[in-house]
Design a binder for these strands. Structure first.
Lengths: 202, 202
DNA sequence: TTATCACTTGATTGATCATTCAATCAAGCT
DNA sequence: AGCTTGATTGAATGATCAATCAAGTGATAA
């Protein structure tokens, strides 16, 4: 058994896919960076696409630990946790000079006709993210109008994050990202003020 | 002078880039579909990337005629023009079975380190789109709070469109798109209701 | 008539791509 | 010791890639 080699391939491929995309990463790139030989890679994976599947499964299982846990421990207010998560993407954009955005979003748009397994894993990664946000909204349910579709609002927050990252990367400017997040904040504030108005009325 | 050949190359390459992406479109693909020989292509373009530049310049110049004019003539209310534009992307998603999203968004995320000319053209395409939306918002200025940053709101609408298209394509389901647009509609309605409340107060 | 010039043809090049495979190795089991 | 099995090595394969270029075409003008 050699889980070490398999894991090393996945970690290396993940870095390269995030950095250069799937199509622009050659198997030779993965081999040279991971110091592993082609025979070993093809011993564990039938082909390049199966490496991608491995990466997406790996990332899916690490979202909780890598992405959410650090922010959950730093922020407790559920609404602020959402904006803390968005701020994490902001920091990543700035520290990588706009090279890294959302890795799943990049792949989702790069792979125009992905095979069902890949597409399903991309969707699963989005779903996990959305479910985490939905949990925050549920925790803040009393600060939102009672008829709020919290699942749809969580999807919408994912949408704003992805679009904001895309624009910031295209313009190589954090301005669009900040203004987009400010707009989202305004929307949520408006929802919250509706609740207060209703409370006064009753 | 043979603008016909040059244009044919650009139109063919545009179709292929929208359909399969830039990296997955080979020069041979462009040649076989356009019935043009490699020498002719390289007579007009120094290389593949220059074809991409030509496509982006061409599309930038056609946004008004191809994208906006049909909707402007079908809808007159400025706010409904915005949602009419979004509905155009919705129709395109459905009629292409989620193959076509926003062509500029796809390329923006596919090209991780584009050269300055390409990056500038991607940004110019986004800017043109945003400016058109901003024009609608200016025309509806009296229905928005007076302190509204209409440029930022236009950027935000682009963001929602791009994110909504991304999710619909990933899930191969129009549901996320529709719910995202509904959320945006709610936000704009909330802004409009603020104006009415202010009017009553005065 | 002849020279010029923009354009076209398509075989060819060398690089790079994902993938294969015969061989060797190391460790455990009998 | 001998046998088995999973893991590793790295040269080799054939396909495909972007790009090149010498030879040709046809229209225009001197």
């Amino acid at each position: 058994m050699s889980p070490d080699t398999r894991t090393k391939i996945i970690m290396t491929a993940m870095e390269l896919f995030w950095d250069k995309g799937y199509g622009s990463t050659s198997v030779a790139d993965i081999l040279s960076r991971s110091q592993i030989h082609s025979g070993s890679l093809y011993h564990f994976f039938p082909g390049k696409q199966d490496v991608l599947v491995g990466v997406l499964e790996f990332y899916r299982d690490k979202i909780e630990e890598w992405l959410l846990a650090p922010i959950w421990s730093a922020v407790t207010d559920p609404i602020e946790r959402i904006f803390g998560l968005l701020n994490g993407y902001r920091t990543q954009l700035l520290t990588t000079d706009f090279a890294y955005g959302c890795p799943i979003g990049n792949l989702a748009l790069e792979l125009h006709e992905p095979d069902p397994k890949v597409r399903q894993l991309l969707a699963a990664n989005f779903t996990n993210w959305t479910t985490a946000i939905e949990g925050c909204l549920d925790a803040a349910a009393e600060r939102l109008p009672p008829n709020t579709d919290r699942r749809a609002l969580a999807e919408y927050i994912l949408t704003v994050m992805e679009g904001a990252v895309m624009q910031a990367r295209s313009f190589r400017d954090i301005g669009p990202f900040d203004r987009n997040v400010a707009m989202l904040r305004q929307h949520i504030d408006l929802l919250a003020s509706q609740v207060r108005a209703e409370f006064v009325k009753v």
